[in-house]
Computed example of a mutant assay.
Amino acid sequence: MNNSSEGLVVLPKCHEPVDIVREEEGFVLLAKPAGLLSVPGRNRANYDCVLGRIQLEYPHASMVHRLDFDTSGIMVVARHKRAHAAISRQFEQRTTRKMYIAIVSGQLSAPHGEIAMAIAPDKERRPRYKVCEKNGKPSLTRYRVVSYDAATDTSRLVLMPVTGRSHQLRVHLSAIGHPILGCQFYAPEVIQNAAPRLLLHAQELEFASPDDGARVVGRSPCPF
């Protein structure tokens, strides 16, 4: 990565497409590739993003939620204001269901469990976040171990975040001693370099349709 004259990082160009998974009157389900912003970055050079690409085909589309730059997977974008309000309300009230896949370092001591640790911005190491029970916001992640690979000493997990804090899954897993492979923020260098990308993928997203209230389940196959 290069630094711009504004002192902000210029992100590498993402050449992978944003795939449309499902199109309805009020929303679009899409699959975001890793290495693409959800919305434009602070640096004007980082204009390429999910929202900008989608608005070429759906000019009134608006972003309901975000995935981190390094995370791939399923997202929903609203096509008009009424749909935006209806879906956003579900994220705020935590009635959506989100399921991620991650590969982490080490073997977890339990086959399933919860990580309840408050998260706050790390003001001295922006844009990182940290566990901070005093000033952080309550954060809850549920997990289930899918498999353990003894040869690489890594575990494949299903992650179900109840809250939606920035960097929540990465911070929580690092805090319990099992950082995600390829994580440039919260993993030791050897684990950062163990994968060509962050091995975190949003595989499923479930919510109520803003059109008729029916349950919608969007899926994006895990690429790793």
Rank of each mutant, 00 (worst) to 15 (best):
A102D: 01
I74A: 00
E114M: 05
V145C: 07
E92K: 13
L56F: 02
R125D: 15
R79Q: 10
T154F: 05
H201P: 04
S155Q: 08
G213L: 00
A214W: 02
G73R: 04
M160N: 10
R215M: 12
A118D: 03
R144T: 00
L173M: 13
V18G: 08
E189H: 14
P111M: 11
P179F: 10
S88P: 06
G26M: 01
L205P: 05
N135L: 07
E92P: 12
V216M: 11
L11Q: 06
A83W: 03
I119R: 14
L67Q: 00
L56T: 12
V171R: 10
G182Q: 02
N135R: 01
A45P: 00
S147R: 10
L108M: 12
E25D: 07
V9P: 13
D212F: 00
A195G: 12
S72T: 08
L29N: 01
P138N: 09
M75T: 12
L159I: 14
V190F: 15
G177P: 00
P17G: 15
V77E: 03
A150G: 04
E206N: 08
M160Q: 15
R197A: 14
L29Q: 01
C49V: 04
M117H: 07
L199A: 14
R219S: 13
T141C: 10
C132L: 05
G26T: 03
T71L: 05
L198I: 02
L108I: 07
K137V: 06
R89S: 03
K98P: 02
G213D: 06
Q203G: 11
A195Y: 15
N193G: 12
F69H: 02
V76Q: 00
S174N: 02
T154P: 04
Y58C: 09
N135E: 14
C49A: 06
V145K: 11
V50G: 12
Y58W: 08
R66S: 00
D19T: 14
Q90S: 08
T96L: 01
E206R: 10
S4H: 09
R66G: 08
A208N: 14
N43T: 06
L67E: 01
R215T: 14
T154M: 04
H178S: 07
G164I: 06
T163L: 10
L199H: 13
N193K: 15
P127Y: 09
L108V: 13
V64R: 01
V146A: 06
A86Y: 00
G52M: 08
I74F: 05
C49K: 11
K137F: 07
Q55S: 08
D68M: 09
I119V: 09
A194C: 03
C132M: 15
F91A: 09
M63T: 11
R142D: 13
L37N: 03
S38Y: 00
I20A: 00
I180C: 06
I176A: 02
A86S: 15
P210D: 09
E206T: 15
